[in-house]
Design a protein around this nucleic acid. Structure first.
Lengths: 354, 354
DNA sequence: TAATTATTGTTATACCTCAAACTTAGTCTG
DNA sequence: CAGACTAAGTTTGAGGTATAACAATAATTA
């Protein structure tokens, strides 16, 4: 009964510790630690005895003690960069979808995910790695918040207190960072080819060559390439910056109308812009897709629910989450990881099928 | 130069610790801890000297050590309950919006947020509080995953290793839990009154009296009350369980048509159902709102982007996040907190304005 | 059989902080 | 001026784990 092995912990605390398990199993605390960690140095018999004792006492490891000891947190932080002042509920659904798959991927790899939203660069100053709250950072969200991105670029550099923070990002405005993006070029080619195969000859592209959102430029380039290969001329409708996406779509339609040029199809480089454009067109009496075929990019859920449902180029969200997590873990481990492009697929819906 | 105060830390580690700051500031480590924590027992002069030393050395507290010492984590965990097998990117946008405001509210109160998605009850077994990863739990997401909710109900009970886990939830299927919900009754009355004031006489309500989603029942009751007060008869279209929301909306329209009864307005107790119904109606040639006025509930972003834009009863998402966090902190502190109902507002859009 | 090597544990300590208990010096009161 | 109190620090000791270094036993080899 009286299993007095070595060094008995004073009975001050109410919490079940590895010492209690050790006493119960008749081994030392260190053996308990090793047994539960799966160290091959402990025999199978001992491991079983320890596991049984732990179960019986309802023992759970104290993560904080383990973290203090090892310096590893088993946690990844996801930072969602928002437009300044933007309501947290109004984020692009694409971002939320990505957040969901990142959490799932991290969980699969045994990591927790700490989530925070940020518009002011300073609000995270020295929070995560310097305080040892996370092993690394995944940055996603709008690329239009310049100051926030500059802040993170600086974080990549080594700091006084130790190595620089480890982090990766989605669709960064800076090429030198560790980023992952959709296969924008290929996806845009798919979209353009789809519209062409539907018989369209005058295809406008609502995009931007100058936005910090570099993915838009990549998509425009893919579109332009496909259109030129078909012997047609690319037609860029530049996005007006600073407006909500929906408004950007509406304004683009106004620009197309004002141009007086014929238009029988539109590729918008982002679904939310496409939805704004779609509504403007429908309200103006255009028939979709008979008069104008439309396709967007991003595969957000609302696209499938619009009237008519919006065709889109949809990135593999699950792959995106996995790739971000794997790249971050590679960066932390100092290993190479060259995967940068998330595969996309064409999702044709009523807005482009004639 | 040689600031040998007391008990010098062996120079093994590369990390800047409070001992280093103490040496730099010429005080003891314990004074550093107190100064940085704002303990009024340290003089203003000392506090400034310590702050300066910390800044100079780029010192950041090691949260893990603090956690181990205090037992507090400064972290709240948000668990999003999903339908089994549901893709993490396909969650109800309402849930994502709520997640966003919870994170923001927690951050304001100085807490980090750990986010995880869950469909299998067992997947979180003993994870958060027993391992000391979070001080408490906020459970949100679908109420249709029965097993997951049962699991959490059990967690409320005290456990062998200590007190039970602290947690609160959004829209629970069990009345005895610490829940927060929208003002469903009041909001539904607003919706019904709005349709009535538009001249509607035959108002159907797509809802459920039996779903584990109790909010639906509350909304139906509010609607029924308002309709009866106007001298009319409530008309319930029961939601078919097990289908995606969009389909549920479409099937409800089919049911209305099959009934052969006149219908000039519809209140759907959830926006995603309303959007499905709306599309079914439009595709069937109905003019909205001229033939049938429509309104939903939840205020999701896609509603504003539909054709025509969907009227809705929108809960105050920001308030919801704040209330959940505050209630959880109250539960942890053992204090009373009676606030349960999130205020809602009517957002009339084209789908109901004639 | 003696020497060597696996095998399986154990002891001791570091990780870094917070906070109770204690010290010292200065101030006030009756 | 003794006694009591305040202000401002300091000493000390957990908090629970992982792991380097050491020890003991069993198995293998020369």
């Amino acid at each position: 009964m009286d299993a007095d092995t070595t060094k008995v912990r004073p009975p001050r605390s109410f919490r079940v510790t590895s010492f209690d398990v050790a006493a119960e199993a008749g081994v030392s605390q260190s053996t308990v630690s090793r047994a539960l960690a799966g160290d091959p140095v402990v025999s199978e018999a001992t491991r079983l005895r320890v596991a049984e004792a732990a179960r019986k006492l309802n023992y759970h490891i104290d993560e904080n003690a383990a973290r203090l000891r090892t310096g590893r947190t088993g946690t990844l932080a996801v930072v969602v960069i928002c437009r300044p002042g933007e309501d947290r509920k109004d984020l692009n659904p694409f971002t939320f979808a990505l957040l969901g798959t990142i959490c799932a991927a991290a969980s699969t790899r045994g990591f927790e995910t700490l989530v925070s939203f940020q518009d002011e660069p300073a609000s995270l100053n020295g929070r995560y790695e310097e305080q040892r709250k996370a092993d690394g950072l995944i940055v996603i969200g709008t690329t239009e918040n310049g100051p926030a991105w500059h802040y993170y670029r600086e974080l990549g550099r080594p700091t006084a207190g130790g190595p620089g923070m480890h982090w990766v990002c989605w669709g960064s405005p800076f090429d030198e960072l560790e980023w992952i993006r959709s296969d924008n070029h290929g996806g845009a080619r798919l979209a353009a080819a789809h519209l062409l195969s539907g018989g369209a000859r005058y295809i406008a592209c609502i995009a931007s060559e100058h936005s910090p959102q570099r993915q838009f430029k990549e998509r425009y380039d893919g579109y332009a390439e496909a259109v030129q290969e078909a012997g047609l001329t690319p037609w860029l409708i530049e996005i007006e910056s600073g407006l909500p996406r929906e408004q950007q779509g509406r304004r683009a339609i106004a620009a197309i109308r004002a141009s007086g040029k014929p238009c029988d199809a539109i590729f918008a480089v982002c679904d939310e812009i496409a939805l704004g454009a779609l509504r403007e067109l429908v309200e103006g009496g255009s028939r979709i897709p008979q008069d104008i075929a439309m396709i967007g990019f991003d595969g957000i859920r609302a696209g499938a629910q619009s009237m008519p449902p919006l065709s889109s180029v949809e990135p593999d969200f699950v792959a995106a989450g996995v790739m971000l997590v794997e790249k971050l873990l590679a960066v932390i481990a100092g290993e190479p990881n060259e995967r940068r492009r998330v595969p996309v697929k064409l999702v044709p819906r009523a807005s482009s099928l004639r």
